[in-house]
Simulated scan of single mutants.
Amino acid sequence: MPYNETFDIVAFRSRSHALKFCQTLNQEGCAARIISTPKEIALGCGLSVRFEPYVTPRAIEIYKRFNLPIIGFYHIERMGSITNIKRIHHESTF
């Protein structure tokens, strides 16, 4: 059976902003961690903040408070060797 996982990320332009945002999410009670930005996105500083999809609306709220420079929010689905990435429009209301 192939390995499956689903998660969301926000990709950053700056390593320091990625670290700051991850720390802020964790302080706000949202489990998050730093990961390498998936090669399919291949933009920015190479770091992203990963969290579960149910955290995304809260992460967007927090992002809007700080307005750090980002590449974007993305939803990632990995099914075996296949990776699907969809951009999440963070201007919309959930």
Rank of each mutant, 00 (worst) to 15 (best):
S48E: 12
F66W: 14
E61N: 10
E77I: 14
Y63F: 03
L25H: 11
T93D: 05
H17K: 14
T93F: 05
L19G: 01
A42R: 03
E61M: 10
L47I: 15
R15F: 07
G44D: 09
C30A: 10
I41D: 13
E61Y: 08
L68Q: 09
G46C: 05
F51N: 06
T6G: 05
R65K: 15
H89T: 04
R33A: 00
I35W: 03
D8P: 05
I85W: 04
L25Q: 12
C45M: 11
L25K: 11
A32N: 13
I35V: 15
V55L: 08
Y74D: 15
R58M: 02
Q23C: 01
L43A: 00
Y54G: 11
L47C: 05
E91Q: 13
I76G: 11
H75Q: 01
I88E: 14
G46Y: 05
T56G: 07
R65C: 09
F51D: 10
S48R: 06
R15P: 07
F66T: 12
C45F: 10
V10L: 04
A31K: 07
I85M: 08
Y3P: 01
A59T: 05
P2Q: 08
I85R: 08
T83P: 14
P53K: 02
R50F: 06
E61D: 14
E61T: 08
H90M: 09
G80H: 13
S36M: 13
A11N: 06
Y74K: 13
F21E: 03
G72K: 10
R33T: 03
F7I: 10
F21L: 07
L68A: 02
T37P: 14
I85S: 01
I34N: 04
V49H: 01
K86W: 07
S92C: 02
Y63R: 01
F7L: 06
F66D: 04
E52P: 10
I35E: 09
T56D: 04
L43H: 09
M79H: 05
G46M: 07
I70L: 04
G44T: 02
R58V: 01
E91T: 02
R65N: 12
S16M: 03
T56N: 13
I9D: 07
F73T: 03
K64G: 14
R58L: 04
K64V: 14
H89N: 09
P69E: 02
M1K: 11
I70N: 02
I9W: 08
N84P: 00
I85G: 12
T83H: 09
E61I: 09
N26E: 04
C30P: 00
A11D: 05
I70W: 12
I62G: 06
I35Y: 10
R65P: 00
I88N: 10
R65Y: 00
K39D: 13
I41W: 08
L19V: 03
Y74F: 15
I41G: 11
S16N: 07
I85V: 15
L25Y: 14
I82F: 15
I88T: 13
V10N: 11
S92D: 02
A42M: 02
L47D: 04
A31G: 01
E52D: 13
F66Y: 15
I85L: 14
